[in-house]
Each structure stands twice: as structure tokens, then as C-alpha cells.
Design a protein around this nucleic acid. Structure first.
Length: 566
RNA sequence: CGGGGUGUAGCGCAGUUGGGUAGCGCGCAGCGUUUGGGACGCUGAGGUCGGAGGUUCAAGUCCUCUCACCCCGACCA
């Protein structure tokens, strides 16, 4: 490909709205163009990267026994109502009506469709196991698209679904996929960390995410250096500090004028935050919920949502709290009525705590559970923090940010039961098929790869996903010798079917070098009067500083070797 | 949806306070001189000032409504 003909221009300045690194570089390199919030066009260079990633994924899926198929984007909304996932996805589901006013959804994922498909085509244990996948466009009306390709509304996902006869076989399929995923990330030049995850709207039991650690990641991983435990913060557990055992003292009301937050109360009463109780109010599917948790711990809303088995969860407004007759700032589980109370397990860690009094400007000292209050449900709804104890080994937990580039779920039988995907075993008995699902976001993989492979000059593509392998960069093209040598070398490289981007523009060396670095092509081949004097070309890896001279005659063979080795 | 911000040439911005000729840099086109890490000179093209309505002799600037985009939070590949 000749740069002079390449569709898409590099930019010297980046649009103000791009503040994420991969987003900035993709735009600066002229690889993507934003059409609307979370909707992008891919220009030829980025599209080549996309297709390479797609092929790597396809190869790995096929190698582990997957069969590729294709399912529709347009899906009847009824199907979603049948599994209740129209509610689970809520507004995230793009919906529309056809000319007969039939409701349709744009598929955000395909468990429903694939399960129906399985129910028609899998009848016997002899038909199992199956690994079925597609690489296809998904639509999700994200509340807030962001970060360029990291979070978009229209994106490409490889989604594979496994079908097995029992848990044990499901585990085997699951393991197979985990290994395929590791291969994929490795081949894309990514270091991805596998962590325990919440299964969210997809549902199911075991779930893992693959997170690429980056500076600008939107996910948080809690992990343990010593035993290797790692989990998304949404799922992570931790051992919280416990205050010293004390004998319960009698309740005592204290005046706390104007003190509403835990900080204020703890400061005012000279009591550490972990010896206070905090009240937090949520509204879930229309109902007010009172959450009690130790003052120094934050509520993990994902865990809370799971504990309540609800679709919608949000913090209650002040008005809603007031309307329920609760005194914000001094709310207390003691003597509260008419509200569902959820307690975090942390309330058992410590004695003689400070809680609200359900009276303005008043708190109560020496509150002890179970002596002083009751609740409707106790669960682990605490957010884990770095510095707390590892749930597996007790060592100190740490935290890092990253981008989720893959998610796997053991679905079990939730979909097969709802949608009637059963098989007959060898004894003639009918069972629901055990399912798993496994997703990788391709667009995000591109973004993550840039986040992990770049320098201040631009992108450094790992060879397997680079749009081209060689940046052929002649200097002083108006010099006939340079011109002839460059054209010849270009023709020879093309003849060997090497992937060459030929910068045939009459630009200054600085412009060419900078563009080459920005585009991140792995090998740069420079030809100039200087190199020709030695009858040679200069070769430089994008990832390294040093360059080397190669004889012109040997250049093609040598480059071929270098690319093969990489 | 809650909070914050921005819309003026392809990109980055000034001009809005105090209404009166549409500006700068980069990029783009032509010519010339340069050029081993984003060169310089000259000439030129490019604008519904996000949109609609209003006030005014006159609106990029004032008023009303509206749309889009970005950032922080709830969502997730």
C-alpha cells in the first residue's frame, strides 16, 4: 500500500474530546472516526488490525473445537421477555418496532437465540458437547459511552456458547475456553489477568473476567500478591479489621448537634470510624431499602443488587428518605419500622458501636448486635479495599485499574430450563443442557493493545495484529536513485507477499519518521542517498532505538526472516 | 438519569464581558527554496459561528427553547 493513496490522514493535533490514550492515538493516526457518542467508523488501517484480531480469535476458537455460525442482530422482544432479561438489561437494550408495530430488540448478546437453536438441534447426549460461536456486531445503549473504543454502543463481540451434559463436562469446556483466551491475548501482545467476576445481567454461577492492566482502565481489580487471589472489585471479598473485644455496655444517647456524616460523628465523639454504623438508603424496583454497614466500609452495589435479587438499584433521594419518615444523618436500625433492613456482615465485627438515634442531632453509643437491633437480611455487601486482608490467605490486598477484555460465565441451566433446551441421557431421562458463555470485545481489544503497547511517539503494534509489517521509508524521493531503489524494493517485498506500507510521499524525513512511529508499524526500512552509498538500507524495529544497515540485495530475505521470527 | 463542561473552517483555538467588516496557528491547493526527527517564503481555497425562535436599524455576541458532544457517577465485552 502506498501512503499517498492510503485513505485516512494522520493529524498533528488531537481533538479535545479524546482524553484517553488509545482514543487519542487512534484518532491522531487517522484510524477511526467518530460518528456519534460510542459509534465509530474504522478506516482502512484500523480495519486491518480488526481483521487480524478477528482471525486470531477465529483460529483459536476453531482449534478448541468451536463451530462458527451466525445469528441475527434483530431479535423479537418477546424472546427477551420470556427470560426476563428485558428487565435485566433495562434501558441498555436497544428496541424498535417494525411496520406492524411488533417490538424488536437489537441483540446485546445471544443467549436466548442460541438456546432456542440448541433446543432444536440438540436432542440426545450423543449431540453433546457443542461449542458454537459467532463474531458479530452487538448493540448496547450504554448509559455513558466513553474512552474511544473502550466503551461503545455498537461493537463487535466474539461470543461462544458451550453445551454439555453435566457440571463436570461444563468445567472441561470452561477450562478449554480459558486456555483459548490466554492464547488469544498472548498472540495479540496483551498481558491479561484472569480475575473472579460478578455475572451481572448474564446470570449464572462462576464467572471470570480477563483484565488488561492499564493506567486509564475503568475496572478495578483487587488482588493478593502472596496467594494470587484476584477479583473484580464488584465481586472481591476481604477480611475487615476487627476492633478489640469488649463487654457490651448499656445503650447511651448522646447529643450530636449538626453532625450527619460518619466523618463528622466520628470526629465529634472521638470514636474511630470502624466503631460506627452507617445507614445508606437505596431504592430497588420501587421499594426503599435501609442498608446498615460499618462506618468505615463502603457498600458494594453489585453485591447488594445480587443479595436483593433486583433489577434496578439506585441511591434514594433525600426526599424519598424523608417521605419514609427517616431522619437522614441520624438514621438507625434500632427501632426502625416499615422499611426493609439489609445488614452487612461487618456489623458483627466489633462491639459498642455508635449508630443514629432516629432523632435529629442525636446518636446512640454502645450499640451491639444482636442485642439492640434486627434486620431482614444479612449478606456480604461490603466493598473490598486495598490494604484489607485477603479472603484466601489473609495477606494484604492490593488494587489496580484495567480494562475488561473478556468475560466467561458458567451459566448452568438457567437458560436451557427457561427456553426448553433439554437432552435425553443414555437411560432415556430428560435433562436441561448445561451451558457456558464466553465473550471477547474486539474493539476493546484494539484499544487495550494500544494502551499497553505505545510510547510518546505513538502506537507500537505487536506484529501479529499490526496493520502492516514494514514501513518502507525512502528519504529524498526526488533523488532518482532513491526513487528507483525504493520502487524496486517495494515491488520485491510485495512479490514476496510481505505487508508493506510504502511512504511514497515527498515529505521531509521528520514528517515521515514521525508518521511511521505514530502508525506503529513494527519494522521501518529507510532508504536514502546515505544508505545507498553503502549499497544498503537501514532497518529499525519500532520497539527499539537502534537500527542496523542491511545490504540492499539481502534486504528482502532478511526482512522475511525477521518477520517470521517475531 | 444526577453533577460539571464545551459547541466558531478538517484539527487546535481567539473573538461573547461592553451588539457594528469572521480571525489566528496547524492542515489543504499552487509556485519556489529547503529537509536523517513534524522546515521557510509568497499566493490561494475553505464558515448555515450546533439548531429554532425572539429582541434590535444591526446578533457569533443579548433573551427563550432545543440538539449534540465531552468529563465524574450508576452499566459492561
Amino acid at each position: 500500500m502506498r501512503v499517498s493513496k492510503l485513505f485516512g490522514k494522520t493529524q498533528r493535533e488531537i481533538p479535545a474530546e479524546a482524553d484517553n490514550l488509545s482514543h487519542q492515538l487512534l484518532i491522531k493516526a487517522g484510524m477511526i472516526y467518530q460518528v456519534a457518542a460510542g459509534i465509530y467508523s474504522y478506516l482502512p488501517l484500523a480495519w486491518r488490525v480488526f481483521k487480524k484480531i478477528e482471525n486470531i480469535i477465529r483460529e483459536e476458537m476453531d482449534a478448541s473445537g468451536g463451530q462458527e455460525l451466525n445469528m441475527p442482530v434483530l431479535q423479537p422482544l418477546e424472546l427477551w421477555q420470556e427470560t426476563g432479561r428485558d428487565l435485566a438489561f433495562g434501558k441498555g437494550l436497544f428496541t424498535l418496532s417494525d411496520r406492524r408495530e411488533r417490538k424488536l430488540a437489537l441483540g446485546p448478546t445471544h443467549e436466548e437465540i442460541i438456546t432456542i437453536l440448541a433446543s432444536r438441534n440438540i436432542k440426545s447426549y450423543r449431540d453433546l458437547p457443542q461449542l458454537l460461536y459467532q463474531i458479530q456486531t452487538k448493540f448496547r445503549d450504554e448509559p455513558r459511552p466513553r474512552g474511544g473504543l473502550i466503551r461503545v454502543r455498537e461493537f463487535s463481540m466474539k461470543d461462544l456458547y458451550s453445551f454439555d451434559v453435566d457440571e463436570e463436562r461444563l468445567d472441561q469446556s470452561y477450562k478449554k475456553m480459558l486456555q483459548a483466551y490466554r492464547n488469544i491475548y498472548h498472540r495479540c501482545g496483551l498481558i491479561a489477568r484472569m480475575v473472579e467476576a460478578d455475572s451481572g445481567a448474564i446470570g449464572g454461577k462462576d464467572s471470570h473476567e480477563f483484565i488488561v492492566i492499564t493506567e486509564t482502565g475503568e475496572d478495578e481489580v483487587i488482588y493478593c500478591e502472596s496467594c494470587g487471589y484476584s477479583a473484580n472489585v464488584e465481586k472481591a471479598q476481604s477480611i475487615k479489621s476487627k476492633s478489640e473485644d469488649e463487654n457490651p455496655l448499656p445503650l447511651e444517647e448522646v447529643s450530636t448537634p449538626g453532625m450527619a456524616t460518619i466523618e463528622e460523628v466520628s470526629e465529634f465523639l472521638k470514636v474511630p470510624k470502624n466503631k460506627t454504623l452507617k445507614a445508606v438508603f437505596y431504592v430497588t424496583d420501587g421499594e426503599l431499602v435501609f442498608v446498615v454497614i460499618r462506618g468505615d466500609i463502603e457498600v458494594n452495589e453489585v453485591k447488594l443488587k445480587n443479595a436483593l435479587r433486583c433489577y434496578e438499584l439506585r441511591l434514594a433521594t433525600e426526599a424519598e428518605v424523608k417521605e419514609a419518615g427517616i431522619v437522614a444523618g441520624s438514621a438507625s436500625p434500632i427501632g426502625i419500622k416499615g422499611v426493609k433492613v439489609i445488614a452487612d456482615e461487618s456489623i458483627t465485627l466489633g462491639a459498642n458501636l455508635v449508630a443514629g438515634a432516629n432523632k435529629p442531632d442525636t446518636h446512640i453509643k454502645n450499640v451491639n448486635y444482636p442485642r439492640d437491633f434486627k434486620f431482614d437480611l444479612m449478606a456480604d455487601i461490603a466493598k473490598a479495599k486495598a490494604g484489607e486482608g485477603c479472603p484466601k490467605c489473609g495477606s494484604k490486598l492490593a488494587s489496580v485499574g484495567g480494562i475488561e477484555v473478556g468475560h466467561t460465565f458458567k451459566l448452568g441451566t438457567i437458560f436451557s430450563e427457561k427456553l426448553g433446551a433439554f437432552f435425553i441421557d443414555s437411560s432415556g431421562a430428560s435433562h436441561p443442557i448445561l451451558m457456558g458463555c464466553y465473550g471477547i470485545g474486539l474493539d476493546r481489544l484494539i484499544a487495550a493493545s494500544i494502551e499497553q503497547n505505545h510510547d510518546d511517539k505513538g502506537i507500537i503494534w505487536p506484529l501479529p495484529i499490526a496493520p502492516y509489517h514494514i514501513y518502507l521509508c525512502p528519504l529524498y524521493l526526488e533523488n532518482p536513485e532513491v526513487k528507483a531503489a525504493a520502487e524496486n524494493l517495494y515491488a520485491d517485498l510485495e512479490a514476496e507477499r510481505l505487508e508493506v506500507l510504502f511512504d511514497d510521499r515527498e515529505e521531509s524525513p521528520g514528517v515521515k519518521f514521525n508518521d511511521g512511529d505514530l502508525l506503529g508499524i513494527p519494522f521501518r526500512v529507510t532508504i536514502s542517498p546515505r544508505t545507498l552509498k553503502a549499497n544498503s538500507v537501514e532497518i529499525k524495529r519500532r520497539s527499539e532505538k537502534e537500527s542496523q544497515l542491511l545490504l540492499l540485495d539481502e534486504a528482502v530475505t532478511k526482512l522475511k526472516e525477521l518477520i517470521k521470527e517475531s
